[in-house]
Simulated scan of single mutants.
Amino acid sequence: MYGCDKSPTSCRGDDKATLPRDARLPINRCNLPAVILGSLAYQRHPAPLLLDGIAELHRDLFRRLEAASDADRPDVFRDYMTVRFRLEWPEEVGLTGRNQARAKANYIKVIRGWSFDSDSGEGAVLKGWVESRFGLTPRYHREALRDPAGDAYRRYTEMRAQGLYGTNALEAQLDLLYTYCQFELVRRHGASRHVTLYRGVNRLADHEVLEKGAGGEHVVLLNNLNSFTCSRDRACEFGDYILAVEVPLTKVLFYCGLLPGALQGEDEFLVIGGVSSVVLSTF
């Protein structure tokens, strides 16, 4: 059984959930509740995460992807997104005049915006999408977010709303991006369930530490969406210390090679958060 409403300390030594109540919503839009998918148990024993209705509504896309070669699948996905969401014909979805400019706020623009600044409006949209779909609330956006009724959280929700306003089903585009990413990861990694990723930090105190252990091993609560890299050398460029994490592949929203040309360099991975066991070390 996954569930556990005890404190992180009382859950020590077992595989029960350790996600604090204030870091999750009671409902989400996938097949597992936030208390499970955001837990330490889930990091150790991941299971598939399925967004509600996406596979059923887009059977034709995944049929085409199954039939395509490795080299062709990114183009199949891009073409489907362009046609499905009328990305090159904004007037057909009612975006005219000044509102037509908002059509440019598509899934690629959002990912690029995050890459430049995770605390940008695009970052707020992505964190809001994770909150909506997986039930994991953001812990940081320009400032700590601890009180849903506080000013900091209000500023974050305003940025999220501004980022979504007048767009063409932007969160639905992100649903498909995540599902396509999972499709590719299964094809490329087979039965593997984890990938080792790294994050450069200047101090562990920048993260919410739930439990400190020996040898640099700690349990932390990550933000609901985070940037990691698959290159340890690259991670050291962003901080004096390196967090190494065994990330469930099911928590990868996007990685640099998924859509060639979308991002440049850094071997970046966008990773859904929750409670995680990490190893802190110096380079």
Rank of each mutant, 00 (worst) to 15 (best):
Y42E: 05
L176I: 03
R98E: 13
H141S: 05
L258G: 07
L197T: 07
G274Y: 03
F269S: 08
G200H: 06
Q100R: 15
D22G: 07
V35W: 12
F77V: 06
P20Q: 09
E217N: 13
S231K: 01
Y165F: 15
G94Y: 01
G273C: 02
V35G: 12
A67F: 03
E91Q: 13
Q173K: 10
R160G: 08
A214T: 05
N31G: 07
K16E: 15
G200A: 01
F238P: 00
A101D: 09
R12H: 11
L37H: 02
K6L: 14
A244D: 04
L177I: 02
I111F: 07
S231A: 07
R193H: 13
N202H: 09
Y165M: 09
S115G: 10
T137K: 12
K127W: 06
L50K: 11
L65G: 02
P26K: 09
R29G: 15
A105W: 04
N168S: 15
N106A: 12
L37C: 07
R234K: 14
V195E: 10
K212V: 15
T179F: 13
G265I: 01
L49H: 10
Y42T: 03
H207L: 10
G239R: 04
G53K: 03
Q182A: 06
V83G: 14
D79G: 15
H58V: 01
D206T: 12
P8H: 07
A23C: 11
V245N: 11
A169K: 11
L145R: 02
F238A: 05
L61F: 05
T179A: 10
